[in-house]
Design a binder for these strands. Sequence first.
DNA 1: TAGATTGTTAATCGATTAACAATC
DNA 2: TAGATTGTTAATCGATTAACAATC
Lengths: 207, 207
Amino acid sequence: MEDKQVPNIVVGRLPIYLRALSFLKADNREITSSQELGDRLGISSAQIRKDLSHFGEFGKQGTGYEIRFLENNLKEILHVDRVWDVVLVGAGDLGNALASYKGFADRGFRVAAAFDSAPHKINSQLPGGLMIQDVANLEAQVQEAGWKIGIIAVPADAAQSVANALINAGVTALLNYAPISLITPSTVRVEQIDPAVHLQHLTYYLG
Amino acid sequence: MEDKQVPNIVVGRLPIYLRALSFLKADNREITSSQELGDRLGISSAQIRKDLSHFGEFGKQGTGYEIRFLENNLKEILHVDRVWDVVLVGAGDLGNALASYKGFADRGFRVAAAFDSAPHKINSQLPGGLMIQDVANLEAQVQEAGWKIGIIAVPADAAQSVANALINAGVTALLNYAPISLITPSTVRVEQIDPAVHLQHLTYYLG
DNA sequence: TAGATTGTTAATCGATTAACAATC
DNA sequence: TAGATTGTTAATCGATTAACAATC
């Protein structure tokens, strides 16, 4: 089966499957099964087969999935069979960590530019070698380059205006590390990372 | 209604509600409604009322919710009406960012100790003032202190063994920044933060 | 062939929404 | 009182699971 609008919750699991496949491949494995993947990820094998069936047929009865083949297909489906330029806004500790993060390169992403508003940071270099630019130039630069993905790593009180600027400049995908709920047009997708939110989810289950 | 096993997906939204309430409070607001919260968060008002109804009655018909009252109740429900000590493992860029993160203090968390395995880091200080300790002492120390929450900020290939050590020492809640799916006993809860996974979720929707 | 595992269907389970009586 | 908004019920919608024919 193709088409028919794939549920967002299914899309959200594909990167997890992809990560598991890369892991197996690094372990020199060539074949896997929905059973093995499910055990590893804490997901039922039926769910994995159902999820994949939204996009095509990738396995062989009796055998399972050829890891490289499924990996390549998932990369295509997720559009990470290429490298995306990402704009980083905020060059604090977190921005530094993201700029030098090794995990982006082989998973489809490259931090293409970094911006901050602090005068003493502007024109200095990030660990990765990237020059920090003045956030005042953000919109013009993003628009000209045609970048579509932004990472917001600024304090909460600056996040909404940074988001607005990025969106004005044509960005339609945001990864937001600031601990606020951004208000955005429905044409823009936002993923939120807030460690305190995750920790509070965990403490619910602690006495 | 009380009891009856609250769905995990509901629990996961509570920290978001709490964050929105704190935001409104900082804006000197005293009363809000499920409608206003929903608009702000992109969630239906019915869902917010339903979610809250798992835990009690916190509003007034015709008026809405007293922000401070609901905030306090959510803090109790999530067990963040106290401050939790958190063990940080990994003192790279990300560990540094987490150690100096200002957002933990007033949301129920304190980084109580930091560990790393790199000889040149051990006994040096993190930005927050915390001394980096040898990961060889992790288990003994965590067990003695009785810490229950760990943050894993080490490379992927070290993450599973760090998780094992933490779990051995009594930790039952893990926030994992390493890009692998940890294998853990069912008594342990894991939250995963992997920026590449989030970005790949976003690129699905980009041409 | 015998054994294994897929892709898919139908059944089950669970979550969201709509609607409204209660009531501030 | 009139208007507003809660808490809750029932209906709808959607996602997960179980089961199995197909087939490698």
